[in-house]
């Protein structure tokens, strides 16, 4: 089967397009998704192909985007609602946390909410404090919604297709930094290449330390693993892919082998992905632990505009490698 390098944005576009072709209940809405062709070009050409009924530009009304998707999904459509960036999903946090995630529960299973929120996430390029969030853990805090965060094109493709077909609400975040990044993808995957929701993936095998990451953190972990290999340290990279459900079995399996762990994330350090994984590891893997668990995250500060201090605040492969060196 022919394999080609594909940018993550193209893989997402392809998944979304195929699902729209497959099921006419699927429609997209969001700011600038139609005429502008998508802020991140994910919905490029969609208006032309599917028309205004199924490709809907919205006003700058995040609260309504978040809530309208819930109603449409309850009534039987399958909305894929885009937040231009995840920063603006904060305005819809109530609709997401209180309605998308809870209507099924508080009516004891009477309704289902088969929607997907897509949101471009992450920081860098001097986007400045209010436009520089990678807050996936905040959304993953709430039971009732799943949160998927792909690290490459093929994963994004299979994860999004599953998210759209599943009957639960899903927040699907797309790292802005990964959109243009090419990674290998077979041309012919059939119609039904679906990656199970909540299943993680070993992105690199190694016996000395486990690096746990998601989305852009996987990139840093893989780069760090290459740096470490030069010094004879073999890192295993576990990409969780989903913050909810969380594939801890995969982490435990790796940790039993390496007995050491560094957690890598793009977001802030307090009450974070790293906190959660570290807590679960010490609770369940205490007997296998040979060193303190380390976390590499952004500095605990809002992100500044100026580029050198911005970079100072961000995690990178060197910081990951340095954290590993402290425990091997």
């Amino acid at each position: 089967m022919a394999t080609r390098n594909v940018a993550m944005r193209e893989a997402i576009r392809r998944a979304l397009r195929e699902e729209m072709q497959r099921d006419e209940a699927v429609f997209v809405m969001g700011e600038e998704v139609a005429h502008w062709q998508g802020t991140h070009r994910v919905t490029r050409g969609f208006l032309e192909e599917f028309g205004e009924r199924r490709v809907r530009d919205t006003p700058i009304s995040e609260m309504a985007i978040g809530g309208l998707a819930v109603g449409a999904a309850m009534a039987g459509l399958r909305p894929v609602a885009e937040f231009m960036t995840i920063n603006f999903a904060f305005l819809a946090l109530d609709a997401i946390a209180n309605h998308a995630a809870k209507v099924r529960y508080f009516f004891d299973g009477m309704f289902k909410v088969p929607l997907v929120y897509r949101a471009a996430s992450g920081w860098g390029n001097q986007a400045t404090a209010s436009h520089s969030h990678a807050p996936e853990p905040i959304f993953a805090h709430f039971p009732g919604i799943y949160v998927g965060c792909p690290a490459n094109a093929l994963d994004a493709y299979g994860m999004l297709k599953a998210a759209i077909r599943d009957d639960n609400p899903v927040l699907f975040t797309e790292s802005i930094a990964l959109y243009p990044k090419p990674s290998p993808m077979p041309d012919d995957l059939g119609e039904d290449y679906l990656l199970p929701i909540g299943k993680g993936d070993i992105k690199r095998e190694g016996g000395d330390v486990t690096l746990v990451a998601y989305a852009r953190g996987v990139d840093w972990a893989l780069q760090a693993a290459r740096l470490l290999a030069r010094d004879g340290v073999e890192a295993e990279v576990v990409d969780l892919r989903w913050l909810r459900p969380l594939d801890m079995a995969l982490v435990y399996q790796s940790f039993k082998k390496t007995n050491r762990c560094v957690i890598v994330e793009e977001s802030l350090p307090m009450y974070s992905f790293g906190s959660e994984i570290a807590a679960l590891l010490q609770e369940h893997m205490f007997d296998y632990m040979d060193a303190p668990i380390k976390r590499v995250a952004a500095e605990d500060v809002p992100l500044p505009y100026s580029k050198e201090i911005e970079l100072l605040a961000l995690p990178n492969a060197q910081k990951v490698a340095a954290a590993v060196k402290e425990i091997v």
């Binding site: 700058i60 920063n87 400045t128 404090a129 436009h131 505009y305 100026s306 201090i309």
Partner: peptide
């Protein structure tokens, strides 16, 4: 810079001029 380089184009402000700033989240 007026905000020490932390704000950039979207976040100019000046206490002295009663200019309470530019803001980047619409509304």
């Amino acid at each position: 810079g007026s905000s020490g380089g932390k704000g950039g184009s979207m976040h100019l402000a000046s206490r002295q001029h009663n200019f309470w700033g530019g803001y980047a989240i619409v509304g």
